[in-house]
Amino acid sequence: MNQKELIEYIKNNFKGIENIKSIDEKQFSITVQKERIINILSFLKLSNFKELALITAVDWIKEEKIEVVYILFSYEYEQQLIVKTYIDRQEPSIESIKNLWEIATMYERDVHEFFGIDFIGNDDKRPLILHNWKDIPPLRKDFDSLKYSNTIFGKFKKDKE
């Protein structure tokens, strides 16, 4: 199947999907509601999108939304598929997909650390990369990195010695 046929196939077999766009000849994206994320991902996994390449997030501070992004890859069709969904920014939470792909445990742990998103069903919330972090998650747009750096590490001053 080429990309066009693939988009047709998904539209025909998964009802209620309108937002499906081609990005270039090797990539296309789908936007779904938060409630349907597990359905669409398990459907895609069965239709040969076997690899979960990444989970990440984007903070849209003006729209008060956080976009959660799942990137899938299919070796059979040689296509990359980006599945997006929007969740509330104040209480960001979404169903975990660790039962579909086990590697999602790690990705969700990482996204939880950097965006503060709660993945329901994934209880592994231990910090992964940051050291002794007590502030708001650092990749939120309202986090002031320069001020943080100046506060903890000090502004550069000339040595007095």
Binding site: N132, K134, D135, I136, D144, K147, Y148, T151, I152
Partner: peptide
């Protein structure tokens, strides 16, 4: 210790 063993959020403190 001031960077490795913080007990409070950093952004509530003063800029150095």
């Amino acid at each position: 210790d001031s960077v490795l063993k913080r007990e409070f959020p950093v952004l509530s403190g003063e800029e150095k």
